[in-house]
């Protein structure tokens, strides 16, 4: 969303929307809705829910266009904040409570119906299995599966940080939480991802293009 669209274009359209310009609203929709959809699809995982959530986001923009202040942050941050908020509300409306993050609960029933403790200590145990770095579609499949198992909050921080290039402060603004919570969530999200991959026998490569 924020990566592809020029902020000034969005800001100009937003000003026109604030003056009830429907043509500008339509342009804004075709410029940003795909980004909302991509973000919300990760969060909600159901096309119908995404339809509804994007609908809610666009209505909120129509109603609150005059409230955006460029001095308070990037337009994309403001828009992601609305999208994240509407996504969460939709999850609540549909009776799907926010999954507890690893900070709160580290216990989950795995696919084999065994209780696996995902505290840091047991992660070391999982990681102690013979390391297997597999590139290609197999690891890709495992990644997809692991992402599907992440909590809403963990998925959101990963997406905002690694896909949308948001800074920690921007993520904090979007998710309406303190800066330190973003760092903690990112840390636990990465750890959880590693744990999930380890369950399938994969690890992320540790030797890459590190340049210091």
């Amino acid at each position: 969303m924020g990566n592809l669209v020029d902020e000034t274009v969005g800001q100009t359209l937003l000003k026109r929307i604030a003056a009830n310009d429907r043509k500008a609203f339509e342009e804004f929709y075709y410029l940003y809705a795909e980004g909302f959809g991509r973000f919300l699809m990760k969060m909600l995982k159901h096309r119908e829910w995404v339809d509804e959530a994007v609908n809610d986001v666009m209505l909120a923009i129509w109603q609150m266009a005059d409230r955006y202040d460029p001095e308070k942050g990037r337009l994309s941050t403001w828009l992601f904040g609305i999208a994240h908020n509407k996504g969460l509300k939709l999850l609540e409306r549909n009776g799907r409570c926010r999954e507890e993050s690893l900070e709160d609960s580290a216990v989950e029933i795995d696919n084999n119906e065994n209780m696996v403790d995902y505290t840091y200590g047991s992660f070391i145990t999982a990681n102690s299995e013979p390391e297997r770095v597999v590139m290609g579609w197999e690891l890709g499949d495992a990644m997809s599966w692991a992402f599907s198992k992440l909590s809403t909050d963990h998925l959101a921080v990963i997406e905002l940080c690694f896909r949308e290039d948001c800074s920690y402060q921007e993520i904090a603004d979007i998710m309406d939480c303190p800066l330190n919570t973003v760092k903690t969530r990112l840390f636990h999200a990465r750890k959880r991802l590693a744990e999930l991959l380890a369950r399938k026998g994969f690890t992320l490569p540790e030797q890459g293009k590190v340049t210091v």
């Binding site: 929709y29 075709y30 809705a33 795909e34 959809g37 991509r38 919300l40 699809m41 990760k42 096309r47 995404v50 339809d51 994007v54 690891l139 890709g140 990644m143 997809s144 992402f147 990963i158 997406e159 690694f162 896909r163 990465r190 991802l193 590693a194 992320l204 490569p205 540790e206 030797q207 890459g208 293009k209 590190v210």
Partner: peptide, 20 residues
């Protein structure tokens, strides 16, 4: 850093896409 770089480069795409 290495793991994060890999993650950034290999974020899985959504299984379903949504288009306006």
């Amino acid at each position: 850093v290495s793991r994060c770089e890999y993650l950034a480069d290999h974020l899985p795409a959504a299984t379903e896409t949504w288009k306006p």
